[in-house]
C-alpha cells in the first residue's frame, strides 16, 4: 500500500490577495458541466485570469515567477460559497499541495481534506508578512510542517493552526475516510435500526 501520510509540504509559494474568494471564482460553474474532474486545472480562476488579462495585467496563476508553486497563500474566508469539490480539485490538479489562509469556509476545508490537501490558518498579521516575503522573492523555499504546526519561508517561521481531527487525519494518512466508515458496520446498522424513520 502506498503511504498516504501527509506530514510536510515543501515547495514554492503563490500569493493571491483578497478576502472572500468564493468557489464560483475558483472554478466558474460552466466548467462543472463534466462527469469527471479531469482538466479542471486549465480553468482554475478562469474569469479572474481573463479579466486581468483584458486589463493588461496578470493573475498570480499566470505569472511566470509563480509557475510550479505548490503552496497557495490567501486571505480570509477562502473558498466560501458552493459545496463544489471541483474547487479544491482544480487547485490540486494545478499543483497546489497546501493552502495557507487567514481563514477558510467550512465546506471548502472539509472537501480539501478529502483530497489530502491541507488547509492551515495563520493570523492576518503573519499572512501579510508571509505575502510580502514571497512577493519579494517568489523563488524562496517554503516548508509547511503539518505535524509541528508551523510554516517556514526562507529564514522565517510562523505558527499555523489546523483542527485537531484534520491534522490527525492528514498525518496518520486516514484523510480518505471511506474505508473507516465501512468498518464495524454492525454499529451503523444498530444506529439505523433505532431511528424512528
Amino acid at each position: 500500500m502506498t503511504d498516504s501520510r501527509i506530514i510536510t509540504v515543501v515547495g514554492r509559494g503563490v500569493v493571491l490577495r483578497g478576502p472572500d474568494i468564493d468557489t464560483d471564482r475558483i472554478i466558474p460553474a460552466r466548467f462543472l458541466k463534466t462527469v469527471t474532474f479531469n482538466g479542471l486545472e486549465q480553468n482554475v480562476f478562469a474569469d479572474d485570469r481573463q479579466a486581468l488579462k483584458a486589463a493588461g495585467e496578470r493573475h498570480p496563476f499566470d505569472r511566470p515567477e509563480f509557475s510550479g508553486a505548490s503552496v497557495l497563500l490567501v486571505n480570509k474566508n477562502f473558498g466560501c460559497g458552493s459545496s463544489r469539490e471541483h474547487a479544491p480539485q482544480a487547485l490540486w490538479r494545478w499543483g497546489i499541495r497546501a493552502v495557507i489562509a487567514e481563514s477558510f469556509a467550512e465546506i471548502f476545508a472539509s472537501n480539501s481534506l478529502m483530497l489530502g490537501l491541507p488547509c492551515l490558518s495563520v493570523t492576518e498579521h503573519d499572512m501579510q508578512d508571509m505575502m510580502k516575503l514571497v512577493d519579494a522573492d517568489p523563488a524562496v523555499g517554503i516548508s509547511v510542517d503539518i505535524a509541528q504546526d508551523g510554516i517556514t519561508i526562507g529564514a522565517h517561521s510562523w505558527p499555523t493552526t489546523i483542527p485537531a481531527h484534520t491534522k490527525d487525519a492528514l498525518t496518520s494518512g486516514h484523510w480518505d475516510g471511506a474505508a473507516l466508515l465501512l468498518d464495524r458496520y454492525d454499529e451503523v446498522e444498530a444506529t439505523a435500526s433505532r431511528l424512528p424513520y
Partner: peptide, 28 residues
Amino acid sequence: QHAVRQLPTGQTQLYIGLHLVHEVTSPQ
C-alpha cells in the same frame, strides 16, 4: 440520535437519514 461512534480521528461517524442526489456533484 444519529451518532454511530467516535472515529479514531476524533470525529463522529454520523448516520445520514436522507441523501439527495443531483446530476452535477454525483457522477464522479
